[in-house]
């Protein structure tokens, strides 16, 4: 038997992908957003409880260029974008590959709403024009499950999850994750920005008070049930970031995952001062798969897991 050497992508799709990436670069060029390249291999990595980095050469393959791009911004870089590979351990599926292409960009002086607007313009360019709905996490869950997830007891949320076939653990955050993944899967609108997430999932975004409730000023763009983009009104307070990393690490230890050492260079850059900005990351393979009508991202990748 000969080894499987052929790429997953066919030559025609390869051309179509290249044309879309070219259009994306032109989109940013026209807006004076410059392209940058930052390391794929870094000494530090993110502390997200549910993102596992791949270790390499004493450091980590980056799960997103966020830390490096923020250090550029703190040092005076203008609004910038990057298209490059990122890595997440163990994520394999129709819409996941351990290595995938990410498009990430930062806009100085933008807030989350302005960046949502620009994100929709980029997505229109790639997928064609469409209307966008914006809905809060709380309203989305209320529409789907008829409960206020921020005020409902964990027991009744567990019951709803079980009714929907959930067989996992019953930690509060985990149940919300499950219900959210169910809600977006069955979203009626074609393109939806979900906003105002629970503050526990703020990561590197600011939090904001909405109707007396502290929520993360983050958004996710869902296109036909698939998460395409994740954006933040960026957190500027390094002290707050250090506290969040500490909290992540407590949860990681509870889940028997290795704790992550905070990146002293990022914290130093934030202490020096990150300009007010908003940033967003787009799963480029997913976006291209949607544009080309493919159900599995493998079909738009050259050598996905198993061939790489």
């Amino acid at each position: 038997m000969t080894a499987e050497w052929r790429p997953a992508i066919d030559p025609q799709t390869l051309r179509e992908r290249a044309a879309l990436v070219w259009q994306i670069r032109e989109f940013f060029h026209n807006r004076q957003v410059i392209e940058v390249h930052t390391p794929i291999l870094g000494s530090h990595t993110v502390s997200d409880v549910h993102v596992e980095s791949i270790r390499a050469n004493g450091g980590f393959l980056q799960t997103s260029p966020e830390y490096f791009m923020k250090r550029l911004l703190a040092a005076g870089a203008p609004s910038c974008y990057q298209i490059g590979p990122v890595f997440r351990k163990g994520e394999i599926g129709k819409r996941h590959n351990p290595e995938f292409a990410m498009l990430e960009w930062y806009r100085l002086g933008y807030d989350a709403e302005q960046l949502r607007c620009e994100t929709s313009e980029l997505v229109n360019l790639v997928l064609g024009e469409c209307s966008y709905q914006t809905i809060s996490f709380q309203s989305l869950m209320r529409e789907r499950f008829h409960v206020d997830v921020f005020h409902e007891s964990n027991d009744s949320l567990s019951d709803i999850a079980t009714e929907h076939g959930y067989q996992g653990g019953f930690g509060e955050q985990e149940i919300l994750d499950f219900l959210y993944s169910e809600a977006i899967r069955q979203c009626d609108a074609e393109r939806v920005f979900v906003v105002n997430f629970p503050q526990e999932s703020a990561a590197l975004s600011r939090t904001v008070s909405v109707d007396g409730l502290e929520v993360a000023d983050r958004f996710e763009l869902i296109v036909t049930g698939v998460e395409i983009a994740n954006g933040y009104y960026e957190l500027l307070d390094g002290g707050e970031l250090a506290r969040r990393i500490e909290m992540d690490n407590r949860k990681r230890v509870e889940l028997a995952r290795p704790p992550i050492e905070p990146d002293p260079r990022l914290l130093a850059a934030m202490k020096h001062g990150l300009p007010s900005c908003a940033g967003v990351a787009v799963g480029l393979d997913r976006l291209i798969a949607l544009a080309l009508g493919r159900d599995n991202i493998r079909e738009v990748m050259t050598f996905p897991d198993g061939l790489a």
Partner: peptide, 27 residues
């Protein structure tokens, strides 16, 4: 394999019960 942006990873599967023939959706 399913993974909401910032959340826990799940596996969503369809199972056919071999005793009853019914299909179960479970995560």
């Amino acid at each position: 394999f399913v993974k909401p942006g910032k959340g826990q990873a799940f596996t969503r599967a369809k199972f056919r019960n071999l005793l009853t023939g019914r299909v179960w959706d479970r995560t």
